[in-house]
Design a binder for these strands. Sequence first.
DNA 1: TAGATTGTTAATCGATTAACAATC
DNA 2: TAGATTGTTAATCGATTAACAATC
Lengths: 205, 205
Amino acid sequence: MAEKVIPDIVVARLPIYLRTLQQLKAEGRNITLSQELGEMLGISAAQIRKDLSLFGEFGKQGTGYNISYLIDRLCEILNVGKEWEVAVIGAGDIGSALVSYQGFANRGFRVNMIFDKNPEKIGTKLGGFFVKNSDDLVETIRSSEIKIAMLTVPAENAQEVAEKLVEAGVKAILNYAPIYLKLPSDIRVQYIDPSVHLQHMTYYL
Amino acid sequence: MAEKVIPDIVVARLPIYLRTLQQLKAEGRNITLSQELGEMLGISAAQIRKDLSLFGEFGKQGTGYNISYLIDRLCEILNVGKEWEVAVIGAGDIGSALVSYQGFANRGFRVNMIFDKNPEKIGTKLGGFFVKNSDDLVETIRSSEIKIAMLTVPAENAQEVAEKLVEAGVKAILNYAPIYLKLPSDIRVQYIDPSVHLQHMTYYL
DNA sequence: TAGATTGTTAATCGATTAACAATC
DNA sequence: TAGATTGTTAATCGATTAACAATC
């Protein structure tokens, strides 16, 4: 049987659904409706039902969706049942914020180490971790379980460091450097560039 | 004559084109081709030409695009010819990183003030700014030129603070709080949630 | 059963691509 | 002029929506 291919744009919405369901659960709720979720997210109820139906039948006609059950299913689908260990590359302001960031708790991630190439930063303590030497990046990450990295080095070095991450076995990179990374097609990359997001909005102002 | 409506997904790509052109310019280049841009960005040349053609004829057949000229046109289109003053709300780790962030330079933005509600933080200095009291947010921003804010408060307070920003005349919000904001339809919002971006990738791992 | 909401179909809507005429 | 690349068209591809049958 051919595996159903899920559009990437649907995959992109699942974490939003999950986050919202966890929020409802934290409020003590047990059941929600596609309509309620839609209103909480500015998305049509039809789209939410269609997205979820690509993965299975998670709701009950006439009743809605059991929140805890749907959370469990989405965690399975997104592979966040366990916690992924994550490396931060670059111990600047963004890197520092990420090692201390509380928002990874219960979302499937835990920062595990941080690297920098600046000798003045190597060995200093940041958010509970000693900053490691970038020269040891490949070796250290390769001998760890880490498959995910967050890249916060300057744009000039980002491509080079990204290639070292791939060499070390990293499969997913959250890239804060303002540059497109050319990497093998099996490596996933997501981009965060505040200026790009802001310029997207100033178009309309 | 009816104004042509530009798809939002096209608008989203323009800042990426602009960033890449500025990179080429910094390397001393004068001319580029849709094909080259496409290769630098993992986007088809046809799409780049089509996107740009929605706004005018910026290239020259047989030659390509003049980089400086195209940069100027994109800055005009995206309204980043002048520098926008931006407020940061929340003086936690992310807010701190944003006030010191070097990546706004030459991209059309300058952080101008930062707010927090914690009395221990109010009045302390952060990245060259004294942290202001959130209680004064509406008044202070309303009497400024600020139309853009970056929101880095906890999810529980984000909706409430966002409404105060709207009251103060803010028209665009870059939201780092992990929650969807329900705001009037003329207010633009962009979302940055590292956990969401990471979960988007773990689906494929 | 009656009422309600999901799951799913088919139609609509929108975005991307390939191909080539226009033109520098 | 010959060669090259843009701008643009039309076809293809993909995503969203409305509507309703299925079913709890």
